[in-house]
Design a protein around this nucleic acid. Structure first.
Lengths: 228, 228
DNA sequence: GATAATAGACCGACGGTCGGTCTATTACTA
DNA sequence: TAGTAATAGACCGACCGTCGGTCTATTATC
């Protein structure tokens, strides 16, 4: 094969790009290192020059996704005009906006991430995401507790619990997607809406907020997402 | 090798036994089919006569664990003298009792289950456990809602959220175990106790129960578990 | 005699290794 | 300063060991 030399930075990112596409398309287990290097156009040796193992590539992908997601939400968290509840709502609104804007890719992602054979992929990404998100969520709750706008005696524990709940939402979203793909968009949307309302309710209750102060969903969101 | 014949039932269970021991000791990925059959004393052909794949063996292990756990809690759920909150507390008490009684094995299990390389093992078992537990939990909440002893507008959603929270407890329990193993039993116990109290608080709040009505932990439990 | 159970040689795919090549940059020399 | 030697490290691809899984032959059971 022709010898092509690129800067390590470019190569690394190209490899992660390929990994992202292939892992999400076929699943982590069903993607071989040979697939990746064929796609990225470099040799086995070169690949192992950059990554110690196939797992290390996955790790790097998870880390990059976590970093991007952090960049996405950092502004919200630094905005001084918001109180804790406002920040939480901003987070939800942001994730909602992203879900509708990027529905096609995101649907793809969810579909890939929750395939039974893709647990490893999912778990690594989730882990990285939680590691990056937890400190921020904790800080929000801590300040909220300080302000008195919510009640979280142990902010870190509560934050981790909120993040663990999010997993449930993702699972249900996947189920709704499957159902919608099977043609039953309306009832899938109804289920998803109902579930997200319950999620919002749970968040409010955990933080002892008045009902209605947290907006995880908005009218028509589920349908818009599923129909996109 | 000598030809040994056993009833399919015995063989199947022996294989699952071996799988359980080996998967938990070395992890799922690090256990080969050859390891299992060497340990169980049969041939490759015999193994694949009983299980279609290595994954199928894992599935069977998860199913067996779920079945056992179900048997464990069924009596509680059929006891007519308990109301919904009583049932929840009985569940917690039961899991607490089991944790202390079987601390050595359970510690082993947790340690194995949460090793990073064991995600697949963990996930399969968790999935099977949730599948088996969710209907029961849902039924408890539904009845509680009916009795008016708790507030769960969408019992299934709430039940799933409670089960997802449990995951967080397991993770923290693992962290505490690691810390305790490193010698720092006291502070590990303190952390675990604090966390379980937060967990109980979250459960109470989600179900709109008065504070103190849910007992997930009891004084000295964390230390007893970690020191056992 | 048919079927279920067992043995174990064998296969192909896969992750990973290894010896070595090629090139761009740096250090040295005249 | 031009020319050259030395070094680093990006890159190649044949090769290896392992592992999940298959296949055929053989043995027990009904």
């Amino acid at each position: 094969m022709a010898r092509i030399i690129k800067s390590p930075d470019v190569r690394t990112n190209e490899l992660i790009d390929c990994a992202q596409r292939l892992f999400f398309e076929r699943g982590y287990e069903n993607t071989t290192v040979n697939d990746v290097i064929r796609e990225a156009g470099l040799s086995k040796g070169a690949f192992y020059h950059y990554f110690a193992s196939k797992e290390a590539l996955l790790e790097a992908l998870a880390a990059r996704m976590a970093r991007l997601s952090l960049d996405e939400m950092r502004p919200l968290l630094e905005d001084p005009s918001l109180d804790a509840v406002g920040r939480l709502n901003a987070l939800f609104a942001n994730s909602r906006r992203m879900k509708v804007d990027m529905a096609p890719q995101l649907k793809n992602t969810f579909n890939a991430l929750f395939k039974p054979e893709n647990i490893v992929l999912y778990h690594r990404i989730d882990e990285a995401l939680i590691a990056v998100t937890l400190p921020f969520m904790t800080e929000i709750l801590r300040r909220g507790q300080e302000e008195g706008s919510l009640d979280a005696p142990d902010p870190e524990a509560m934050a981790l619990m909120l993040l663990n709940l999010r997993l449930g939402v993702a699972k249900v979203m996947y189920r709704a997607l499957q159902q919608a793909e099977a043609g039953d968009v309306e009832s899938a949307a109804a289920m998803l809406d109902g579930w997200m309302q319950s999620y919002g309710l749970a968040v409010e209750r955990i933080l002892k907020l008045p009902e209605g102060s947290i907006q995880v969903t908005e009218p028509g969101f589920a349908r818009a997402f599923l129909a996109a």
